[in-house]
Computed example of a mutant assay.
Amino acid sequence: MDALLEQLSAVADTAVDGRGFDPAQFAGVLALFEGHAHAWWAAAEAEHEAVARDTEAAVVTAEGHLKGVMDAAVGRYRGSSGQADALSAATAAMETAFKATSGTHR
Score class of each variant (00 low, 15 high):
H48A: 15
S80R: 00
Q25K: 10
P23V: 12
A57G: 00
W40H: 12
E63W: 03
S102L: 13
L87S: 03
D71P: 02
A97K: 04
A52H: 09
A39C: 06
L8P: 00
D13I: 10
A10M: 07
T55G: 02
R78P: 13
G18K: 06
S80T: 02
A72N: 08
G18S: 06
G18R: 03
V60T: 07
S80A: 06
P23S: 12
G103K: 15
A100E: 14
A44R: 14
S102V: 14
W40S: 13
M1Y: 03
H48P: 00
A24C: 03
A3W: 05
K99V: 12
A43C: 05
V51Q: 07
A39E: 13
V16R: 15
E6K: 12
D54I: 02
H105E: 10
R53Y: 01
A62T: 01
A100V: 07
G79T: 09
A62I: 00
D13N: 10
G35T: 14
A44H: 11
V69H: 03
A44G: 04
A44W: 11
A73N: 05
A27R: 12
R106M: 05
V74Y: 04
R106H: 11
A89R: 13
S9D: 11
L5F: 08
L30K: 10
E47K: 15
E49D: 12
V69A: 12
P23C: 05
R19Y: 09
R78Q: 06
G75L: 04
Y77S: 06
R106F: 11
Q7D: 12
A84S: 13
T55E: 03
A50D: 10
G35I: 10
L66F: 09
A89M: 09
H105T: 15
F98A: 15
D17F: 07
V74C: 03
E34T: 12
M94W: 10
E56I: 03
A92K: 14
D22T: 05
E49H: 08
M94Q: 07
R76A: 09
T96C: 03
L4V: 10
G18E: 10
T91Y: 14
S88R: 15
F98D: 04
G75R: 04
R76K: 11
T55A: 02
H65L: 08
A31R: 15
T91Q: 15
T55V: 04
G20V: 09
A27T: 11
A84P: 03
L30W: 06
D17I: 04
L32W: 01
T61A: 11
D22N: 13
A86E: 10
F26R: 04
D17C: 07
H65I: 07
M70C: 08
A50V: 04
A58M: 02
A58R: 02
E6S: 10
G18I: 03
T14V: 00
K99A: 15
V11C: 05
G79L: 01
W40T: 14
D17K: 13
D2T: 11
W41V: 10
